[in-house]
Amino acid sequence: MFYRRIWKSNLVGAFFQPVLYLLGIGLGVGALVDQGPNSAAVLDGFSYFAFYSSALIATMAMFTASQEALWPTMDGFQWSHAYRAMTSTPIAPRDVATGLTIFYAAKTTVGAIGVAVVLAFFDETRSWGLIGAVPAGVLTGLAFAVPLAAWTSSRTTPDSFPPILRFIIIPMFLFGGAFYPIEQLPDWLEPVAWVTPLWHGVELARGSILQTLPEGRGLLHVGVLCAYIVLGWMACVVTFERRLNP
């Protein structure tokens, strides 16, 4: 019973939300944008629907993974002590970090596949590149979840979580290239977007779906995302060790 309810709400998240965003923003705002005077030039000739929808895998992955790495992860460390219970068995904090990473990966994979399936219904985004976009989404999710898990494990209260969403996640969502190319941003802000994991994820997913990405740049994006994940994992090992074996 419990699992069925969870499963249902996952279903809502995995299919319902992307469909809504696609219709609400992709088609709706798209219609306005495509009538716009200079949109074709800015979007490289793609429709706004194609441009926006192809980034959705990355943005949705960011949201799912970040939320998972905050409250539910804190629950494991602080409230239910599930992780401490684990480490009193022969499992090391390092293994907990790896286990969590796999868990986040699984969670984002489900979400990313959901979005990909939805995108496959639309002519403009139906391409073999969708298959490549799923791992791109997973990498994006992990690039958020793993470093955030390190932060979560060093906290005892969730007080810092809403500001994290408000001042890190939401601004990236808004300014990270999901809604319009970052060339639109003021010149001083553009380089900031270059270092955010979301932009790399968006570029990777979009490039894969619309098949516009040169191989070299693709590798660069993958590299940056992996760097976030590896550094985050290393931080996790340190903070988990401190938390679980004080």
Binding site: V29, V33, G36, P37, S39, V42, F175, Y180, L185
Partner: peptide, 9 residues
Amino acid sequence: RVGLSALVG
């Protein structure tokens, strides 16, 4: 303002 406005008009 910085993004969509320019696209939509």
